[in-house]
Design a binder for these strands. Structure first.
Lengths: 193, 193
DNA sequence: ACCTGAACACCGTTCAAGT
DNA sequence: ACCTGAACACCGTTCAAGT
């Protein structure tokens, strides 16, 4: 890649990160190009689809989550490992409003630029779930797709301004269903502080 | 209202129901008008916003859900009543893809044509939850907004083609968290059939 | 190689003009 | 009263023309 092109690309990514943080993943591509002082066609040249742009933005985060998952797979408590990874996943989806919907769509669309990362993410969760089922207190009637769906629904809650304040609490509620036998942190808390 | 206007309105509602059933709540208003063989301005004249159109489409369903909730409030089992109402709510949101997001937004927006109905809906759920907490096995650390949020997240699952097949199963999982002490139907089932 | 203006087919909003 | 074509300001896609 030519030097000016690389610089353009990096500038576009930085601006896109700002705009999408403000307006969510459905932000206008034209608006992103405008704020980056390039033509719309130039943005599309670097990132031919919205998914491609998202993929580039999420790349770092995805890699970090994957590394965390790998670490957690050998951590002492399988239950804690599962809960921690779930929390990380949901937290990372909070950076860009609407990104969870893109990820769920990408899972079913092999052509999506996000497909591979999302499938890998689900696989990591599936491994942590399997270990928590075998050696910990995770219920056995759910699989990796169920876990991904629950994580997705929790991330969706965080996207809704009127529900976001409840997201942390409801995370605990859902976790209590996934780990009914675990002595996890919130197990004994039946009333709010 | 003039007779021709009423006929137009009814025709528009019927067509809009079809189109939104097919394409979800973000279907093009122009497309709805086109399929109804009227000008776009005529559709907007009857329903000045997308929410107003949705409100008219959901009116019947909302009233039915409210009536059901009223019945359930005096039914013998508070736990069953809560679960049944939750199930009805989630099922009704399944008719129009994306409608749950509109409802959640409407709860926070007093100007929305859907606001009143959604607030009433949440209130009905809150009453059923309170009874299940007082006389049944519902956990006491959640309130009506939490319940609405959980119901919303389950409805959202149903909107995602890749996750919808899990919606019924995950409904049971979430219910098991809301009613940890209840002898509900799925309590003993720890593996899938 | 890389960039971009312009044409295109869409969208929802608004309103003056028609019946 | 009720309807609607047309103008408007948007959107993402595409590509011929420029540097």
């Amino acid at each position: 890649m030519r030097a000016d092109a690389r610089k353009n690309r990096e500038h576009l990514l930085a601006v896109a990160g700002d705009v999408i943080t403000e307006q969510g993943v459905d932000a206008s591509m034209r608006d992103i190009a405008r704020r980056a002082d390039v033509g719309l066609a130039t943005l599309l040249r670097h990132f031919p689809t919205r998914e491609a742009l998202l993929e580039a933005l999420l790349r770092t985060n995805f890699d970090q989550l994957a590394a965390t998952a790998a670490d957690l797979e050998t951590s002492p408590s399988p239950d804690d490992a599962l809960v921690r990874w779930l929390r990380d996943f949901v937290a990372s989806a909070r950076d860009y409003r609407g990104v969870i919907a893109s990820m769920v769509t990408a899972i079913a669309d092999e052509e999506s630029a996000l497909h591979e990362s999302c499938v890998a993410m689900r696989a990591a969760g599936t491994r942590l779930l399997a270990r928590a089922q075998a050696e910990g207190g995770a219920r056995k009637d759910i699989d990796g797709t169920d876990l991904f769906a629950l994580a997705g629904s929790l991330a969706w809650l965080g996207d809704q301004p009127s529900l976001a304040p409840r997201a942390d609490h409801l995370f605990d509620v859902v976790v209590s269903a996934v780990l009914p036998l675990a002595g996890h942190a919130t197990a004994g808390r039946k009333d709010r502080p």
